[in-house]
Amino acid sequence: MDTVESDAPRPVLEGPDIERVLTRIAHEIVERAKGADDVVLLGIPTRGVFLARRLAARLEQITGRKVPVGSLDITMYRDDLRMRPARALARTEIPGDGIEDRLVVLVDDVLFSGRTIRAALDALGDIGRPRAVQLAVLVDRGHRELPIRADYVGKNLPTSLRETVKVQLSEEDGRDAVLLGLQQTAPAGEQ
């Protein structure tokens, strides 16, 4: 065992791992959706959008067809809005053909309490009526608070509640990695 417990977050997935994981998820989507004819990928900002775009590129490689990809901001549907000052909104971009009767695959970086996904399902209901909704996440860290599960999981990462999971993607953070760290026990009154 490592004896030095450093505070620095430790990478559990590196760039090439993430590439492989996304390729696998793309193949799983094609397999389960029987060719992914009617798939629409919707990423949840911020990093879910980049993951959705990367998945769309892979799906195009596999199937030879363009796969519609967009983003779904869930801020206005959160159940914890009143616990913090009002947040800035992100972009919702629904692909031109809409989501009516399509197979919508929601894409997010980390699945934790499941509350984001609940909010996303509510948001989808105001936009249209998909044939089915599935969920793809890069990391499932457990500790669900709602009856929600992912259909495609990059990596199951058992964690304790004191740990933090941070996904970095080159589009936003300059590099690809999934970092496991310890929650900073901030002095009271901070933040």
Binding site: D80, L81, M83, R84, P85, V110, E145, L161, G189, E190
Partner: peptide, 20 residues
């Protein structure tokens, strides 16, 4: 968002909410 009491400026910060 949250309504902060302007008189009690962050004297009691609530327990960090478990958000995503």
């Amino acid at each position: 968002g949250a309504v902060f009491d302007s008189k009690a400026t962050s004297a009691t910060s609530p327990a960090p909410a478990r958000t995503e």
